[in-house]
């Protein structure tokens, strides 16, 4: 596939979850005539992924990044919105089309312990994609498994073993192998390295980059780790409480980040990773984790140091420069992060 051609496009994806409520609370809702409150997990998220591109989706817990991945994979249904994957309707529920979509887009899961069935041998785990997708050539299966394992750096003798015998890094290799057996065009990695130690994390990142190049994959890399996303991705999409707040090229992240939330993330990462504190002039200590999101208005208003009256209207995602979108009424257009640039 040509570099630069569109592979995946989604638009207007929204998802609301019902809050977990007790019987008594339900009764009270009924009695008081209220409808049960819902949590907006995803709010009108749209994006386009091009061939052989790595898109980093950056967000903290509760940002909706896993919900987005699950919707893309059809593991959850969105309330609104649509998508196209290589000319197919992504959300077409007819089994034939859904399977065809899944062959084109596969996922590596976050938890290397929960994503492999402990009672199945590695061979059976890896054969599942072939069985489900009716890949006929049975005499070919074994060769493809051995090739697939070699690609992720595992020996053929792992086939007879069980998940419990492997370390987290090895399990993640098995998960990557399983995702690639169907030759997808798009690979989604949802926090695929965050459960691993740094040295193993580096091994898996190297593997992902090598496979992406060799197989000309488009990679959607979902993570909370600013440093990892910045080094891996071509383009970064920042999610906050279900909304895209900023989207920009990874090379410009430190220099041009315009949304106060993105700058706070960078500030926290600089403090943690590089021991640089207060580098971005954003109070990373301002605590908004307790407050409930506003029903209208900017989702970041409670944590934002620059919020003013206009922020009670939800800002739309607007183009700041070509390739740089931001949803903020007061985006930081002056180089507020010059201090960081000088550190580079």
């Amino acid at each position: 596939m040509e570099t630069g051609s569109e592979v995946l496009r989604v638009w207007g994806l929204s998802k609301r979850f019902e809050r977990e409520r007790s019987m008594l609370q339900h009764l009270y809702d009924w009695w008081s005539g209220q409808s049960a409150s819902k949590v907006q997990a995803l709010c009108e998220v749209g994006m386009t992924i091009f061939a052989q591109e790595t898109v980093g989706i950056l967000g903290e817990s509760g940002s909706g990044k896993s919900t987005l991945a699950r919707i893309l994979m059809g593991l959850l249904h969105s309330d609104e919105g649509g998508g196209m994957l290589l000319g197919n309707d992504l959300f077409d529920k007819r089994p034939g089309i859904r399977l065809a979509n899944l062959r084109r887009m596969q996922m590596v899961f976050q938890d290397p312990f929960g994503s492999l069935d402990p009672r199945m041998s590695i061979k059976n785990i890896l054969l599942e994609p072939f069985k489900i997708h009716g890949i006929a050539d049975k005499q070919d299966w074994n060769r493809r498994l051995v090739d697939g394992l070699a690609e992720v750096g595992l020996e053929p003798n792992v086939l007879a073993r069980y998940p419990a015998e492997f370390s987290g890094g090895q399990r993640q290799r098995i998960g990557i192998c399983r995702a690639l057996l169907l030759d997808p065009s798009v690979l989604i990695a949802d926090e695929a390295v965050s459960a691993l130690d740094v040295s193993v994390q580096a091994q898996i990142l190297e593997l992902l980059v090598r496979l992406k190049e060799a197989r000309r994959l488009s990679l959607i890399f979902i993570s909370h780790d600013v440093a990892v996303v910045r080094q891996l991705a071509d383009r970064i999409i920042v999610l906050y409480r279900g909304s895209i707040v900023e989207s920009l090229s990874a090379d410009c992240l430190l220099k041009d980040a315009a949304h106060p939330y993105t700058r706070r993330l960078i500030g926290a990462a600089l403090t943690l990773r590089e021991g640089i504190s207060k580098a971005v002039g954003v109070d990373v200590k301002k605590n908004d984790s307790v407050s409930e999101p506003q029903s209208a208005g900017c989702p970041f208003v409670a944590g934002c140091p620059e919020a003013f009256a206009d922020c009670s209207d939800a800002p739309k995602l607007m183009e700041l420069h070509p390739g740089h979108m931001v949803a903020c009424h007061v985006p930081e257009t002056v180089r507020a992060v010059e201090k960081i640039a000088s550190l580079e």
Binding site: V198, S199, Q201, A202, L205, D225, V226, A227, V228, R230, Q231, D251, L254, I266, A269, L270, R273, E274, I340, L343, E344
Partner: peptide, 8 residues
């Protein structure tokens, strides 16, 4: 092995 932010 530590992912760095300020290095290109």
């Amino acid at each position: 092995a530590l992912p760095r932010l300020t290095v290109e």
